[in-house]
Design a protein around this nucleic acid. Structure first.
Lengths: 229, 229
DNA sequence: TCGGTTGGTGGACGTATGTTCACTGATGAA
DNA sequence: TTCATCAGTGAACATACGTCCACCAACCGA
């Protein structure tokens, strides 16, 4: 599976330059339009499994029956969204790996990068954070798998950075799990924050930074044989 | 506002012994039946704002129009649910206060008590954990207020326990916020866990215990002037 | 005892939904 | 050029929804 290429802020199926495209790509276009429509509706405050099939097709600029050419039902579209979001998460990890860990002010810089990434991928984080504990069981468990896998990969990356040589693999994973949970919840804060209020944004960032600092402080001083009791 | 008294696992409006009740109490009965119906539907895996008015009244054993005698719309019922859940949270805090902090094995014991409380109040935690990041904006923000207030009260309680004399009020609140977020997410784990699998439950408990231990370790060693940079 | 108040009923309405079906017109391989 | 394939169409369906209305029966203060 490869990432979709978005064409604009409001994607509908009947674009101007779709006449000259081969059939496969045209199909992919309206498929993308359907997915984007679902994301767009969630961006307006709706939860995924309250979305209707007709509603999605309406926003996508397509007749309801077209939906079935691409998905069996809305749940199947949801699972595709989970997969896409998982790709986004892994892309974040990959970019972080490529950039390397900042040596000075590591945590604050990382939180800033994370926040920027969340805003740049607003819709996916909105979906993940929103449906992770909320919606239909099948989607929830799919998201859980995706996040679990993300935590595993992050654990590997952190291990190679050798920041916490004192931690066993299990303990290190636990630390990563804690950070991921904290930061996924932080994503909701970031996304809910109205833009323009710089002071509030700064206070929020400080809060997130210090929460991670606290976790890292605990992690750096953790001694397996003592704390495990 | 006082807590409702539930009458059974499946509460409907047309109970057997409602003939001899005064009108006010009878009204309260069907109101409770509506609230319980919504909770019951969520317990079956539905998210709140996908619930329909008719659906709720059907489960409550009442005709759809009766709904309007008690709530303006489903959202208003949701806000009542938020308030109820807030009461449950505060009740937990009150009970913990009364029992006092366990001196030995504090964290593990506390996690066990918490887990028991979550299971005993399954529906409220399911609602809070599920709608905290998911559903309609108005309910989400109402829950956020409730949780914020809970964090504040918990901060006061922890302050009086004098566990972290090194922390400023702001830092202590941050620690509580971290613990609450972690434990609210843990509630989802607990509620999703299929019963009977003792080994998995034990592993899950260990995980939660060690996450809190890690936070507490960090908190106990936090030095304001050093870490705030 | 009376009569207003009130919680619950049943029917009806317009509208929205998910799903079906036959159809169309362009695509792309033969 | 021919022709099967197939993404998208439009009409129709049964069903569900939220909301309105008139009505009823029981409660409860007068």
């Amino acid at each position: 599976m490869t990432a979709r290429s978005r064409s604009g802020p409001e994607m509908t199926a009947g674009n101007d330059d779709d006449e000259l495209l081969p059939r496969g790509q045209r199909k992919q276009r309206t498929r993308d339009a359907l997915i984007d429509a679902a994301l767009q509706l969630m961006n307006e405050g709706r939860s995924f499994n309250s979305l209707g099939l007709r509603e999605i097709t309406r926003v996508a600029g397509v007749v309801p029956t077209s939906f079935y050419r691409h998905f069996k039902d809305t749940n199947e579209l949801g699972l595709v969204l989970v997969e896409e979001s998982g790709l986004t998460l892994r892309r974040m990890l990959r970019e972080a790996r490529r950039a390397g860990a900042p040596v000075k002010d590591m945590i604050r810089r990382s939180v800033r990068v994370y926040k920027a990434f969340v805003l740049a991928n607003r819709l996916h984080f909105l979906f993940v954070a929103g449906e992770r504990s909320g919606g239909s069981p099948v989607i929830r468990s799919a998201i859980r798998n995706e996040v679990d896998q993300f935590i595993n990969e992050m654990t590997q990356d952190v291990r190679h950075l050798a920041i916490f040589p004192n931690l066993s693999p299990e303990a290190l994973r636990r630390v990563c799990e804690l950070v991921v949970n904290t930061m996924l919840h932080a994503a909701t804060d970031v996304l809910d924050l109205p833009p323009g209020d710089d002071a509030l944004a700064q206070a929020q960032e400080d809060n997130h930074v210090q929460q991670v600092r606290l976790i890292f402080l605990g992690a750096s001083l953790w001694r397996e044989e003592i704390e495990r009791g």
